[in-house]
Design a protein around this nucleic acid. Structure first.
Length: 155
DNA sequence: CGTTTTTGACCCGCGC
DNA sequence: GCGCGGGTCAAAAACG
């Protein structure tokens, strides 16, 4: 799998750095193309813009008993729909940070009900509200690498 | 009292 | 035009 094109505002955790031991990440889907279903096709056709401006779409499929996974951002639910051919509803969330219109949708896998599909739609224009939380994790604190104690030349 | 959930209504594109 | 499928809005309720 190629990670070179990952969404810069999305933290991709390799499996050996799984930050959330409560469930097992079993499958990653990075949709560089941005097309998951016919809605995406419309999405892409309708506007003649660069698709990366329209919104990067990333889907994760993971095994989880929880429906909604706390990924560090604060989401406000704004809709729920039942999907044809699926007994499971689909939930729509929007990032509750002002000015940030990132959306995500969460639904259970149609066939394997122990899987949850989370689709992120867009790019955050702000930091994770829980950056402090992540900074407590030595393994994945990005700032720990960049914020070196800058040994000032106190000669 | 401000924020979030809930839930039906509304809207839009598409096929008939 | 109408119904269907899917996405969003918004008013009221619930929550802290």
């Amino acid at each position: 799998m190629d990670f070179s094109h990952q969404n810069p505002n999305y933290t991709f955790f390799p499996e050996n750095l799984n930050p959330m031991p409560d469930f097992q990440l079993s499958d990653y889907l990075m949709l560089d193309d941005g097309i998951l279903d016919d809605h995406d096709a419309k999405y892409k056709n309708g506007v003649g813009k660069n698709k990366s401006e329209l919104g990067v779409r990333v889907a994760l499929r993971m095994k989880s008993e929880m429906d909604v996974i706390d990924d560090g951002y604060k989401w406000r639910k704004y809709g729920k729909k039942s999907i044809k051919n699926s007994p499971n509803p689909r939930n729509y969330y929007k990032c509750s940070s002002g000015g940030c219109n990132v959306k995500k949708r969460i639904e259970r896998d149609i066939n394997e009900k122990s899987y949850v599909i989370t689709t992120y739609d867009g790019v955050h224009n702000h930091d994770t509200p829980s950056l402090l939380y992540y900074n407590q994790m030595p393994l994945m604190a990005p700032n720990a690498w960049t914020l070196q104690p800058s040994s000032s030349s106190t000669t």
